[in-house]
């Protein structure tokens, strides 16, 4: 049998064996030792028994409630990708459906596919979504683009006309349809001057407001301090009176 000193020195190894943790060499040492040492074997068994009893203490469900996600719902990349794809398909579908309403007359012969079972020329119903060929779609898009361009030109013309009519004669801000760089610079400078004046006026207003607010706050603080002073004075007087009474009551009869 090994000496007590060895047993004590091997306790850490025995713990390593008990928990099957730590280095392999530690556990082997513990096994080798216990093969010869009955008291250590007994102690090992007892500690194992303690571990078994400890295992009977569970955390009640009330203490550890089921974890509920605390943040916003998670969106993984797969649903996000699917959503994007669905959006794309929907967008194309809407665009194509929109385009079909621009195409006058019955569907052209070169239509690639018709998804609706309804007749090809019944474009009145919005549910009759048709797929059209690339050429037809391209033509329709070109026509639409030309239409939009014409609208933009009209708007630009009317804007300049309105601006020129509303500006005073000889004004620096007179609108011109094709301004030169020098004119643009002049306009910019005028605008900057206006902004600076506006900013200065606003700043001045804020300064005045801030001064007024400070004066008001100071007045409030002064009033508060005066109130606290009066309360403290009253409290001190009351405490003093109570102390006097206390001294009088607790004094020996002959001292009264």
């Amino acid at each position: 049998m090994t000496s007590n000193l060895t047993c004590e020195a091997l306790r850490e190894d025995i713990i390593a064996l008990l928990y099957d943790d730590g280095e392999l060499a530690e556990r082997s040492r513990a096994r080798d030792h216990m093969a010869q040492c009955v008291p250590c074997r007994l102690e090992y068994a007892e500690l194992k028994g303690v571990r078994k009893v400890l295992g009977g203490w569970d955390v009640p469900v009330a203490v550890v409630p089921k974890v509920v996600p605390i943040s916003r719902p998670r969106v993984s990349w797969i649903p996000a990708g699917l959503a994007a794809a669905a959006g794309l398909v929907l967008g194309i579908g809407i665009a194509v459906a929109g385009r079909t309403t621009l195409i006058p007359g019955p569907a052209p012969a070169q239509t690639a596919a018709v998804t609706s079972s309804a007749p090809a020329n019944s474009t009145a119903s919005p549910t009759n979504t048709r797929f059209v060929s690339y050429d037809v779609l391209q033509d329709a898009l070109n026509a639409q683009e030309a239409h939009h361009q014409a609208e933009i030109d009209d708007l630009r013309r009317s804007f300049f006309q309105t601006a020129a009519a509303s500006a005073p004669a000889g004004s620096a801000t007179k609108m011109v349809s094709n301004p030169s760089p020098a004119t643009i610079e002049k306009l910019l400078r005028a605008s900057e001057d206006r902004q600076a004046r506006l900013f200065e006026a606003r700043l001045s207003g804020l300064r005045t407001e801030s001064d007024l607010q400070r004066q008001y706050d100071m007045a409030q603080i002064a009033a508060g301090l005066a109130y606290i002073d009066s309360r403290t004075g009253a409290d001190a007087a009351r405490t003093s009176e109570l102390m006097k009474n206390l001294v009088r009551v607790t004094a020996k009869p002959r001292d009264r």
């Binding site: 306790r11 850490e12 025995i14 713990i15 082997s28 096994r31 080798d32 216990m34 093969a35 074997r41 007994l42 090992y44 068994a45 007892e46 500690l47 194992k48 028994g49 303690v50 571990r51 078994k52 009893v53 400890l54």
Partner: peptide, 28 residues
């Protein structure tokens, strides 16, 4: 180790037996 030894004593005082099978031998 010390905690487990103390636990054994406390449990014994509480009347909980922590006996476990004692191995006859340990093969190294």
């Amino acid at each position: 180790y010390r905690g487990l030894v103390e636990m054994k004593q406390h449990l014994a005082r509480e009347g909980v037996t922590s006996a476990s099978h004692i191995p006859d031998s340990f093969e190294s």
